[in-house]
Simulated assay, not measured.
Amino acid sequence: MIVPARRLAALGVLAAALTACGTPQAPPAARPAPARHTVAPAPVHPQPQPQPPTLAPGPAGLTPVFTHGPRTPDRTVALTFDADMTAAQGARAARGEHFDNPALIRTLRALKVPATVFMTGRWAEQYPAQARGVGRDPLFEVANHSYSHYAFTGGCYGLPTVSPHRMRADVERAYTAFREAGVEHALPYFRFPGGCQDERALKELAPAGVTAVQWDVVSGDAFATDADAVARQVLDGVRPGSVVVMHCTRSAAPATERAVRTIVPELRRRGFRFAKVSELIGAATARH
C-alpha cells in the first residue's frame, strides 16, 4: 500500500517523539548542598572544688597545728573519728577482725551529724566501698591519718615508727590510696597517729602543705566497753570550738556508736551545733 506523503511525514514526527521518550536523559548536575552553620557544643568544665581553709605555716616554716576552733558564743563542736588500720593488720582483717564501723556511720547519718573522718590509707584499701561512701557523702569530710598508722615519733603507745625521711612519703601514699578507693576530695589535713608529734616531724611534713589537726577533748573510746563512761568524758570536756577525737574501728573502739547516741542529743540540748573541722579552721582563719 502506498502511503501518502502527508501521512509519512506525520508518522515520522510521531516516531521521533516516541524515540525521544524512550532515551534515558542525563541527570541534572548535582547542586552543592547549602552550607549548614552548626553551633559547637559548649565545653564542659567540671565545677571547681572550693579550696579548704588551712593554717599558715608555723615558726620556721613548720607544719601548723590546729587543736580547736574559736571559743565563741555560737557553741560549735567538731566530732572527729580516726579510721585506724596499720599496714601490718591485713592478716587480722582476713581472719575476721573488723577495723570498720558501718553502724557508727549509719548513726551519724540518721542523727544528721557532720563529722570529719581521719582515715589511714590502709583502711581505705581494706574498705574501699565504705571509704568511697564516706568521701562522697556531703555530711562528712575525709582527712589524712597516714598510710600505715605508724608513729612519727618514738615512744608513741608502742606503735612502730616511720623514719624521718619516709614521713612525707607515708602521708602522700595515703592520699594515693584514697584516690584509688574513689575518695576524690580528701582534705589537706593530717592527724598524727597517736597524736604524737615533735619539731622534727613538723619540719619533715612542711613540704606536704598540710595542716596538722589534733584535738582538745579526748573521748577515751579506744578499747573502752562502757559507752556511758565515754559519753560522760566527752560531755564533761566539750567547750565552744572543741575538737573531739573518737574512733571508727569496731575492734578497737566497740562502744563508740552507743556513746554517740548519748553525746549528740545532749550536746544539742545544751545549745551546741556540730560542724566539720574545715568549718572550725575557716572560722579561726577568718579571725586573723
Rank of each mutant, 00 (worst) to 15 (best):
T116N: 08
N101L: 03
R122N: 07
P59Q: 08
Q49S: 04
C21F: 13
V44S: 15
L139T: 11
V117R: 08
C156L: 09
R36C: 01
P32E: 13
N144Y: 10
R75P: 01
A93K: 08
S146G: 01
R75M: 02
P48L: 11
R122M: 10
T153H: 07
V142E: 09
A42E: 09
V113M: 00
C21D: 09
P50W: 12
H98Y: 06
D84W: 10
M119H: 06
H37D: 00
A103W: 01
A88M: 05
A83H: 11
E97R: 13
A20G: 13
G135R: 12
A35C: 02
R95E: 08
P43L: 15
L55F: 14
T76V: 06
P27E: 14
A88P: 00
A131T: 12
Y127Q: 15
P46F: 03
C21G: 05
A94I: 06
E125P: 00
P27K: 15
Y147F: 10
G133Y: 12
L111S: 05
E97C: 07
G96M: 10
P102E: 03
S146Y: 13
H37W: 05
W123P: 00
A30R: 07
D100C: 04
T63G: 02
L55A: 15
M85P: 13
Q130P: 01
H45E: 08
F140G: 02
P28Y: 00
Y147P: 01
R132A: 13
T63N: 07
T67E: 13
H145V: 06
P43F: 15
T80I: 06
T107R: 13
A151N: 08
T19G: 10
P28R: 11
H37G: 06
Y147I: 04
F66L: 10
L104E: 02
Q49N: 11
F140R: 07
Q47L: 07
A110P: 01
W123T: 02
G96I: 02
A93W: 14
L104K: 12
Y127I: 04
A93I: 03
P114F: 10
F140I: 00
R136N: 14
Y157T: 08
P50V: 10
P32M: 07
A124Q: 01
F118Y: 10
T63A: 14
P52Q: 11
Y150D: 13
P27A: 15
G96T: 01
T107H: 05
P57E: 08
T19Q: 12
V142K: 01
A151K: 05
L79T: 03
P102D: 08
D74P: 02
R71P: 01
A91H: 08
L55W: 09
A29R: 06
P43T: 08
R106Q: 15
P52Y: 10
A29N: 04
P73V: 03
P52D: 12
A93N: 04
T86D: 05
R92L: 11
N101A: 10
A91W: 09
P102R: 14
M85V: 07
E141K: 12
L108H: 05
P27Y: 06
G135S: 05
